[in-house]
Structures are given as structure tokens and as C-alpha cells.
Computed example of a mutant assay.
Amino acid sequence: MSNTLEDHVGTVNIGGRTITNLRFVDDIDGVAGEENELSRLVNQLDRASTKFGMEISAEKTKLMTNEHGSITTNISVHGQNLQMVQFKYLGAIISDQGSKPEVLARAAQTMTALSKLKPIWKDKNISVKCKVRLLRALVLSIFLYVCETWMLTAELQRRIQTLEMRCYRTILGISYLSHTSNDQVRTTIQQHIGPYDDLLTIVKERKQRWYGHVTRSDGLAKTVLQGTVEGRRRRGGQKKKWSDNIKDWTKKTFAETQALAHDRDRWRDWVHNSSRRRPDDSTQS
């Protein structure tokens, strides 16, 4: 990669640091601010790979943009044009539509896992407490994978609450036709297992804990999370940022959360309390 970047001038600058690529094991993500720049980067990487006896797989190499519309420049490897897609990276969907595709995909996988365990949920010889433990270990763990990276809108937060209620109604055998409210379902679960954190609370807490971890570190993740990008903002309403969730949930400014997060113990206590603030939800999902 160092040979590829010898004469390459990157235009993506975050917090004063130029970022041209991200690497993990044998995966490389090229980063560019313009289509021609990305084309040059791909060509240079292809030449450098060939020089060392390696070959880029055109079938596995994809393009993605964070702008509306598509890439108009033909970017190819070995004469084969690369496709523009949303794709999975380390098991998570990376998309220009934000976190919604990933959250919806996780919800679908969670419901599939829930359905496969239907014989267990219907078994009256298994206690509700045991069923909840199995639900958390075998079903909800699928949903929570990389939830720290999600940017949650109000819609996605409602979907998370809806998913949890569907899971609990399934293991309790409560039909929506029974007109049992979500509060009644929560009360029933609590009667069997005691006080517990709901799914949205767990997501919020994990995300805030990761925010504190990154804030106390000194790596690329901190640069990307806290740095500003050069250039002008587009007109109209702006897309919500990952850090906007932290601001909304803590009710603190960015500077205040930064100062608080550097004290591990204080931040842990704050996260524990702020994650548990949620709007009243006594209606059916």
C-alpha cells in the first residue's frame, strides 16, 4: 500500500489528517473525495499489486458513494467495470442510507432465529426465566452485533422497541389479538426475571460506552469521530450524525461529554443513568 500511495495526493481530510485508505487484515478500503481521484487510486493499487505478484479481484471489489446518485466515471480492474453497491463489511451492511439497512437486516435475522426456536417457546416445561435467558443468548445477541456503530433515528428506535415486544410476546404466547399492552408484557417479564434493561437501553448503553472508549483513545477512530471535514455543507436540512445520538441521550454539549468521558468511572455512571431515560410507551407496537 505504501507503494500505491507514493505519488498519490488525497483530498479527504478529517481533523487535519488526510485519509486515503482503511485496512483490516486482507481488506482495503480506498477513500477519495472525487471520482477521478478514486479511479487513480484503484489503478495505482492494481499496478502495485501486480508488481508484487498479487491480483485484485474485480468480482469482490465494489464501489460506494455517500452522495445521492451514482458514480459516473468508469472505474475498472483488468478491463472489468466495478459495480456500485451497498455491501457487507465484517458482517455489517455499509450503505449510503445510513444505519437503516443494517438495523432492518439485523431485525429480519433476529426474527428468523426466533422462529427457528419455536418448539422451545411453546414448551410449557421450560420456565419463562429460562426462555428469556435463551432469547438473550441465541436471538437478541444477533441483533446487537455492532450496534455501537448505528446512528439511530426516532423511527429506528421505535422499530427496536417493536422487535423486542414481538420477541417477548412470542415466548409468552401472547397474541396481538388479545389487546395486551406493551406495559403489561413488560410487567409479566419483570415478574419472572425481576428488573431488566430493555433492548433499546442496551443499544444506547453500548453506543455510549464505545463513545467513551474512543474519546479516551488516540487513534484513527477518534480522528474520524471528532474531526471536521473540509468543504461546504449542502443546503437544506443536514443528515443526523452518529454523535447526535450521544448529545440527545445525555442532554449535554459535545465539550461536556468529552470532559466527562475522560473520567472512566464518572462516564460509566452517567451512561448507566442516561441510557435508561426513555419516553413513555404504553401502547401496542
Rank of each mutant, 00 (worst) to 15 (best):
N21Y: 10
I28H: 00
S39K: 14
A48I: 01
S49E: 08
K51D: 14
I56E: 00
E59L: 06
E59F: 03
K60F: 02
K62V: 11
K62D: 05
M64W: 01
H68R: 13
H68I: 10
I71H: 09
H78P: 02
Q80G: 05
L82G: 06
Q83Y: 03
V85F: 13
F87C: 00
I94E: 01
Q97F: 06
G98Y: 05
G98S: 06
A107R: 11
A107F: 04
A107S: 12
A108M: 00
K118I: 12
I126L: 13
V132D: 11
A137F: 12
A137R: 14
S141W: 13
C147D: 05
L152S: 07
L163S: 08
S178G: 00
I189Q: 03
I189H: 13
Q190H: 10
Q191N: 14
Q191I: 05
I193S: 10
D198L: 07
T201R: 05
V203D: 02
Y211A: 05
V214E: 06
R216V: 03
G219R: 02
E230S: 13
E230C: 12
K240A: 06
D244A: 04
T257H: 07
D265N: 15
D269A: 11
S275M: 01
P279K: 12
D281S: 15
S282M: 00
